[in-house]
Amino acid sequence: MGKNIMLTSTKSGAGKSVVAIGLYLKMKEQGKNMGYFKPIGDAMTQQEKSRTDKDVSVISSVVARKFSKEEICPYFLNPEFYLEEILPEDAREIQQQIKDSFSNIQNKVDHMIIEGNHSFTQYAPVNLDDVYFAKEFNADIVICAPIEDDDDLNAVFTCHQYLTSQKLNVLGVVLNARSKMAEIRIKKYHTDLLESRDIHVIGSLQNVRDLEKPTVAEVMDATGAKLYSGDFLKVKNNLIGSFIIGAMGAEAALKILRANVDKCVITGGDRTDIALAALDTSTKLIIFTGNMEPVPRVVSVAQEKGVPLLTTSADTFTVSEQIRRIKTHIQPSEIQICRDQVENLDTEFLLKEH
């Protein structure tokens, strides 16, 4: 009999999509008939016909369009304002819609990988949380947890205790190292500590910087900035390695600009000196704040170098805050990275009967 494995997490950025893609590909290589399902995706827009979850869009290509995007992710909610879209009394109809879609895929595959919400508690007020669906789908649980420092272990313990109290079968945890230091501490301290408390560590994800870098398109989505110059189709998937606020003097700025590669520079449209200095270094994007347009000379140099220019009415502080909250998504070019990451996981353990 096949197994259903639900990937839940302590908070967003846990690496669930990385694990889902990697597991799907590895198990498929082993000849297993795999399915993927995400009960609730992020609504990227309020327009019904164009609502989609960006990770689902990539994963649908991984599963070779075996199932449509609508089948593998049947419902969408805005994570920040979902109560404007659904009330608790509406949940039953949505639950049934999701369960019907799940059954349709499950009947055609041997094993299912189910990607949960951003955290194990998300959507609990409207009965659309991971616990509800894990019980309905008779799924074993894998906890994915981002690790930056020792404090993140608190969430792992809390999550594990809660899920087991709900009579769910928790197979273990996948630790997602968010830095090289975290990788060291996972090996030196965290793994043995968790195992000693009967929380099995299935493995860990290595820190891969490219998976954390936003694209030009994601920066545009997060800030609402408009494309002033550049070819969107050519640059939308370019990765941004760092962000620089161009509010200092030109001489000081040049040192910082030279020290950072593949960067996005945020500055005012009147700072021609900063913009030209940025274009003379490794820059992938420039955002002009305060609704100020760049001068023609800057536009000309940017077009020559293929650097897109964005404009926004927001001030520099607001844009920096928007970028701080940016959510990155897996790009098609990063699929092989996901496959490589699961080499560090005990995938055979996942399919055993427990």
Rank of each mutant, 00 (worst) to 15 (best):
T328E: 05
R197F: 15
G31A: 07
L285H: 11
K54L: 15
Q336R: 13
N207Y: 15
H118G: 13
A139R: 02
V174F: 02
E212W: 15
K66V: 02
E343V: 07
D100G: 08
G41I: 00
I86C: 09
S57V: 15
R258K: 13
A14M: 01
D221Y: 09
N237D: 14
Y36N: 01
K226H: 09
F349A: 11
E48R: 10
A20P: 04
V201K: 03
G22M: 02
F243M: 14
D152K: 06
V131E: 08
T45H: 09
V319C: 05
L345Y: 01
E212T: 15
I287F: 00
A177I: 00
C73A: 03
V216Q: 08
V174D: 02
Q161T: 14
T328W: 07
G116C: 03
Q322V: 05
A14S: 08
K108D: 10
D110M: 04
D221R: 15
S68M: 03
C338L: 00
N117D: 03
R92W: 12
K255N: 13
N344Q: 11
G246C: 05
F76Q: 12
D340C: 08
I323V: 11
D152E: 10
D262C: 09
L193H: 08
N104T: 15
E183A: 04
D53R: 02
L87E: 13
D340R: 11
E343F: 11
D262V: 10
F137G: 01
S9D: 01
S313E: 15
L175V: 03
H200P: 12
N4A: 06
G306F: 08
T311G: 09
S320L: 09
H190E: 14
Y228M: 07
I256A: 09
D315W: 05
K226C: 07
S204G: 13
S12A: 12
S103R: 13
A247N: 15
S179M: 02
S313D: 14
G241K: 09
M44T: 15
P39M: 04
Q331H: 10
E218G: 05
E348T: 14
V56K: 07
Q336S: 15
E334K: 09
R271Q: 07
I330D: 00
D315G: 09
F349L: 14
Q206D: 13
V342L: 05
V301R: 08
P294E: 04
K236T: 08
D129H: 08
Q166C: 06
L194K: 06
I245K: 11
S320M: 07
T8G: 05
I113R: 00
Q322H: 10
Y228G: 01
L239Q: 14
E89W: 11
L279C: 01
E89F: 13
N169R: 08
G22I: 00
L239Y: 13
E89D: 14
G224C: 10
